[in-house]
Design a protein around this nucleic acid. Structure first.
Lengths: 204, 204
DNA sequence: TCCCCAATGTTTGCGGTGCTCACATCGCCG
DNA sequence: CGGCGATGTGAGCACCGCAAACATTGGGGA
């Protein structure tokens, strides 16, 4: 039985820590995310989280993994099976929108080199990588090396997200952002046959 | 006269701190960069750097600003006045190469929201922004709203850099990386008229 | 020339943090 | 029902950012 209030054992401290970490990330940014603050917020002693996370890095990796899963779901919600450039652009807009709406989480997901020892995190990043590649592969099954195109599209969208986060682009309204993203993605996709061609040539 | 070894005054502690910070960044990554470690490495008491940097954030901002200037120089060295898509691709390759060769510095430059109160940093980011935009503007003076195209190209390159840093792309050899970047940039640039057109349409 | 003072570096100290280790408490299973 | 493993606690260490009071110096005005 979880939720035993006032009892010695918490019930589901791991989930409580993740939730607290998410809150702290939104409120104070990445710097404010400390194990002690998480413990305080969960109403537990400072060292209790160590029963569930090997160290701070493991905690943020777990949060990041959660973020990857959420992002994947968010993209799927934007369009379940994108096929046309418009569909893909909608997914791209969702990607950038996610970054803008969860800046600290997005940074936690990408700001630091992914710890290769953390299985959960590696798995989560693999999932989203495959997902993004798969989207483009399915949308453009005819072009031979779609991975190059997928890479380019993903990089474009990822870069747009980061430049927005860093305030380098006009993000005053969601519509402006969406228009920018759509324009860029369309430009990229119009060139898709050429992209495939060049990638094929350069990899010979 | 600086460099007075053994003397009470250091000579040029500010520069020594920046240098030490750069070294620490390369060696231990962003997490290892502490004011105290910088002070130790400069052979000075823990709080001496505070005479030259208001706080830790000011220190990393100064390092980041230095990084922006270096990156700008690196891009200029790759091609002083890029005009053709090949030229632009060379600059893009240099951008990604810089990120891969100085991962911690690159992350310091972009991982955190730019402090708008730090004049030096704001100035440095403005410089590189203008530089990148200017490159594309000069290379494609005919397309009307070049900013949209410049944004797309920059985002693409920036995204490629980050995906490489995060180990999401094959970066086993510099040649592979360069080929990927060239292919992606060429794909983008081939579509440039369309990009300009769509940006114009979407901003009406 | 000399001396004073502002710039620069030092010391001490506070509160916060990550992490370890010994200990306390509890639930479950034999 | 009794003990054992899982979970939470507390004390403690080293490090960190930062502030305030103090020490040292070198250069510029008398």
């Amino acid at each position: 039985m979880p939720q035993a209030s006032g009892s010695y054992h918490h019930g589901d401290l791991r989930a409580a820590c993740l939730s607290a970490a998410r809150d702290l990330l939104e409120e104070d940014g990445g710097a404010g995310l400390s194990l002690r603050a998480v413990a305080r917020r969960a109403g537990v002693s400072a060292t209790a989280p160590y029963r569930h996370f090997q160290d701070r890095e493991a905690l943020v990796s777990a949060v990041a993994a959660e973020g990857y899963r959420e992002l994947t779901g968010f993209l799927a919600a934007a369009h379940p099976a994108p096929a046309t450039p418009d569909d893909l652009a909608a997914v791209a807009v969702a990607y950038v929108r996610f970054a803008i709406e969860h800046p600290a989480l997005f940074r936690a997901m990408f700001a630091e080199p992914c710890d290769p020892d953390n299985e959960e995190r590696v798995l989560a990043t693999t999932v989203i990588t495959e997902y993004v590649i798969g989207i483009v592969r399915r949308a453009f099954p005819d072009s031979e090396p779609t991975d190059a195109l997928a890479t380019a599209v993903w990089a474009l969208v990822h870069g747009l997200a980061f430049l927005h986060l860093d305030g380098k682009l006009d993000a005053s309204t969601p519509e402006i952002v969406a228009d920018q993203v759509r324009a860029a993605v369309h430009a990229m996709l119009v060139a898709s046959p050429t992209a495939a061609q060049m990638a094929a040539r350069s990899s010979e």
